[in-house]
Structure formats: C-alpha cells, structure tokens
Design a protein around this nucleic acid. Sequence first.
DNA 1: TTGACATGCAACCTATTGGTTGCATATTGT
DNA 2: ACAATATGCAACCAATAGGTTGCATGTCAA
Lengths: 107, 107
Amino acid sequence: MDEVFKALADPSRRKLLDELFKSNGKTLGELCEHLDMTRQAVTKHLVILEAANLVATVWRGREKLHYLNPVPLQEIYERWIGKYERHRLRALSDLKKGLEQNKNKKG
Amino acid sequence: MDEVFKALADPSRRKLLDELFKSNGKTLGELCEHLDMTRQAVTKHLVILEAANLVATVWRGREKLHYLNPVPLQEIYERWIGKYERHRLRALSDLKKGLEQNKNKKG
DNA sequence: TTGACATGCAACCTATTGGTTGCATATTGT
DNA sequence: ACAATATGCAACCAATAGGTTGCATGTCAA
C-alpha cells in the first residue's frame, strides 16, 4: 500500500505507466525513448514500480518486457479513495457548517 | 494533480486525512495528539495537504480548524486510476498472453 | 567465436524531504 | 494588563530520492 502511493508520487513513473497503458509489454529500451533521462534512471523507476506491483516483467531472451498491472490501483481506490468519496457530500456539508459556525462566533 | 499525489505519498499525511475523516474540523493541536512528532512537523504536513487542496482551513479565533476535502481524490480516481481500472481485465489478459508468448519462444 | 545489443550492478553527487529547535505573533480568560 | 494558549516563521540537520557515470553480464546474429 505504502509502496504504491510512493510509486505514484513521481511524475516520471506515472508517465511510464501511461506508456504501458498505451502499449503494454514494452522493453526497457522502448520505455527509455520517451523519457529524458538515462537508461539507468529509468531502470530505477521501473524497479520501484515493480516493488509496488504496478508493473510485472517477463524476460524474452535479452529483452525485458514490462506489463502494467492495475490491481494495486483498484485496491487504492477501494481501500482509500473510495472511503472518502463515499462521504464526499457529507464532508462538504460539514465544511459549510464549519464556515457558518465561524461566521457566527465572529459576528 | 502532481501535488495531490505527492501529498498522498507520505504515511503521516494519510494518517492526518484519516483523523479528519474520523472527525472533521480538528484544530492543529488536536491533530498533533495522534502523531509522534513535533507540532511544527505536523504543520508542515498540513501545509502540503492544503497546497494539494486536500484540506481546507478556517480560523476560529486563535484556533485553526482543518476540514477534509475529498474532491481531489475524486479527480485522481476519475482522471487516473479509473483510466487503468476500466481496462483492467484487458491488461491482465495481455499479461497472460505475454507470458504464454514468452513460454513459446523459450520452448 | 565474436562483436553488437539489452540490461544489470554499484559508486557517487545534488536536491528534496521530513524532522528538529528556537523565537515571534496573536488571541483568550482572568 | 498579562499570563497562558494556539499557532506561525526560519534556520538547521540527517536521510532519502532522483539522477549521473562507469563497468559487468548475458544474449543474439553473422
């Protein structure tokens, strides 16, 4: 869970996921083409994405193919984002109430 | 968008959001009670959450009340997580296909 | 077999992050 | 008015993150 959030925090890593979304099963070399950094830097990002289980890899000869795994994103939504969303309207009404309460205390 | 992801990357900040989820409108002092760090550290986290628009604040006298704003989380889901989720099954089937393809190439 | 290709591993550097301490400011209650 | 309370601001510090360069390893193709 923690690793997934951390993996998503970096824009380059999100871009990598976007690349894989566009065309799954890319090699490291192919993924490098779209990022303005060295191959080694991209490798590091991919390692983090793998650790978060957001990317699965398969060796084919000397090439490493990268596949997007959206399951952890689903879990983030269900366990975390959904939790707040469900009460979105209530939270906003609380905020409004708080603002009015403040107004009253002041005035 | 970027700021939201960054804000969510830290476990202490997620814990703060959890606190506000449990009971909205807490003061800084109240939020500090549950975190094992100095008040100033908590303030820094809250500043980041505010910058990401995940927390809205209201002054009531000398107290600062903090309110959870789940809207950016909704946006993350819609613009980003949902994008992958929608094609979750397809992506998994691609992964499977990739594995089989590899198996064939090897054998 | 051998050279080119695709990737891995490790040391290193700099910027950022998460935390601290110390002091300043503003509000409250007596 | 004044002491206590609630918070802000800034300097500082250690750990981590994101990037680099250099070299090693393993696979393909002629």
